[in-house]
Every structure is written in structure tokens, then in C-alpha cells.
């Protein structure tokens, strides 16, 4: 078992907290632990709070928000040392931080799985900030390292011209949990997973792959399929644990029922495209 870690990046005021508020309010059935810089703008309905202290808010749905203090990595270590892991760990990077400097720990630490980098971009302010002589380079880097870029504050029809890659309009995404946390095999009820926003794909994955073959096959996956996870049959009765987010993929020996799930965004990819890609790997 690995604990997936997703990092939410983006500049001050870009809408990271708004995204986290939405994540907390959704009925995703996941026990999330969310590490934030501070509780200042969190908007949690008082009736949903099970317990609260200076640096921790526990919700009745099993989610927990905590402030990370001066040492984020120490806080991550504390979570991993607990006996009751959450289903997913979400870390809010500070406004100027490089989210990759945090997310890389999920590729390094054997107990963590890479859950990706979601960078939030302010539709109105981004063009100006991206060219700012003081902070432009660091803000453009936040976008460059992102696995998913979401754009906030598009209500007036704004869209940042300086964004060149694929990005999603947050206003058109009804559910943010699949974007941030993905979905686990059998974890999300069909009605939700088949929501119009998302293309949900699954495969039996019982064809045996050598590791190198599997990595090469996964590398060829369609662009719009931004998350794939699950277990694939491996030689000698073993299984590969697979996590793909954005451009990142990890394959390691794991333990679990074979089967893959993936999600893409409606309009970016279609189910037949994904099926065609996966089936092309059948030997």
C-alpha cells in the first residue's frame, strides 16, 4: 500500500483555497488529509466539523485539514508514521513555492505514490504575473511542472493568453475530487464516475507485461487521459502497481486485484481512443 500525495500549486490569490473548499464539500467518499498553509480562508460548514484545534480541523466525513507548520516534510513523516493512513494526502504549496519540490517526495518515498501536481491559474491576473520581472519565472515554472492546470476566475470570459498547454476551466468542472485525487478501483459509485465532466475508463489488465513493456505502453497513453491507476498482471504470478498522473508514471511490484481505471476530461479524450490505445498492447 502506498499513500497517494497530490500537491496543489499556484500563486497567492489564484484560487487554491477555493479549490480545497470545493474538495472538502464534495461527496467523494474519500478520507482526505489536506495540509494547508493556514486556515484563514478555509470555508468549512460548522455543522460538518467533528473536532478542531489550533492546527487541525477534523470533519464528520473523515477528512482532516491541518496546518503544516515550518517543516512540511516533518508533517508528511508524521502522517506516514500514523497507523491510520488517510486515503489521500493533499498538500497546498505556498504561493511562490515550486510544487514539484514537494511532489518529488512522492516519487522518492516508497510509502508514497505520486498523485500529481494541480496548478491553479488566475485567468485575470496570470498574463501580468507571468511577465513580472520579479516573480514571472517562478510562476511560469509552477505551470510547467503541473500535471493538470486549472484556470479560475473565468466568469467574465477571461482566459490567460500566456497559457500555452492544455488547461481546464474550473468553472466547467462540476466535481474536483477526480481531478485532484483520481478514483480508485471500485471506490467511486458509477453515477458519480460517469458524471458528464469525465470520461471514465476501465480495463481488466490481465495480460501479462514485462516491466519495460508496460512502461513503454503506458508512455504512449492518450494525452487527455490524465490519471491511470490499478494493478496489471506481471510474470511469475506477480502484479504491477501502476500510478500514472500527467506525464509521470510509476510501476512497482504490488499486491492487489488486477484491473486498471483511468479518467480523462470530456472533450479532451474519448473512451474508444483509450480502449484502442490499451488494446494495442495486447500481445
Amino acid at each position: 500500500m502506498k499513500l497517494p500525495l497530490t500537491v496543489i500549486g499556484g500563486y497567492l490569490g489564484a484560487g487554491k483555497t477555493t479549490l480545497i473548499n470545493r474538495l472538502l464539500a464534495e461527496d467523494h467518499g474519500l478520507r482526505l488529509m489536506i495540509m494547508v498553509n493556514d486556515f484563514g480562508a478555509l470555508n468549512v460548514d460548522a455543522s460538518l466539523i467533528a473536532a478542531a484545534s489550533e492546527d487541525l480541523i477534523a470533519l464528520t466525513n473523515g477528512c482532516v485539514c491541518c496546518t503544516m507548520g515550518a517543516d512540511l516534510f516533518l508533517a508528511i513523516g508524521d502522517v506516514l508514521d500514523r497507523s491510520d493512513w488517510p486515503d489521500h494526502l493533499v498538500v497546498e504549496a505556498s504561493g511562490i513555492a515550486d510544487p514539484a519540490a514537494i511532489a518529488q517526495v512522492a516519487l522518492a518515498e516508497p510509502d508514497l505514490a505520486y498523485g500529481g501536481i494541480v496548478t491553479v491559474v488566475d485567468a485575470v491576473a496570470f498574463d501580468r504575473l507571468a511577465d513580472d520581472p520579479q516573480i514571472g519565472v517562478q510562476l511560469r515554472a509552477q505551470v510547467d511542472v503541473a500535471d493538470v492546470v486549472v484556470v479560475s476566475k473565468t466568469a467574465a470570459g477571461a482566459w490567460p493568453a500566456r497559457l500555452t498547454g492544455t488547461a481546464l476551466d474550473l468553472a466547467t468542472v462540476a466535481l474536483v475530487a477526480p481531478l485532484i485525487c483520481g478514483i480508485a478501483v471500485g471506490q467511486v459509485p458509477d453515477r458519480r464516475a460517469s458524471h458528464a465532466d469525465y470520461v471514465r475508463w476501465q480495463a481488466a489488465a490481465d495480460t501479462v507485461f514485462e516491466k519495460e513493456e508496460l512502461l513503454a505502453h503506458l508512455a504512449a497513453r492518450p494525452d487527455g487521459l490524465f490519471r491511470v491507476k490499478g494493478y496489471v498482471a506481471a510474470p511469475r504470478g506477480q502484479v504491477w502497481e501502476v500510478h500514472c498522473v500527467g506525464r509521470q508514471m510509476t510501476v512497482s511490484v504490488g499486491k492487489g486485484p488486477v484491473g486498471l481505471v483511468g479518467i480523462g476530461l470530456q472533450g479532451c479524450v474519448t473512451l474508444p481512443e483509450v480502449d484502442a490505445w490499451w488494446n494495442s498492447g495486447d500481445l
Binding site: F73, I76, G77, A101, I102, Q104, V105, A108, E109, P110
Partner: peptide
């Protein structure tokens, strides 16, 4: 830190 963390831990 990201690369050192697993060792430090």
C-alpha cells in the same frame, strides 16, 4: 529534501 526525506526518515 524530497530526495533526502526517505533516508532521513
Amino acid at each position: 529534501m524530497a530526495a533526502m526525506f526517505p533516508i532521513m526518515r
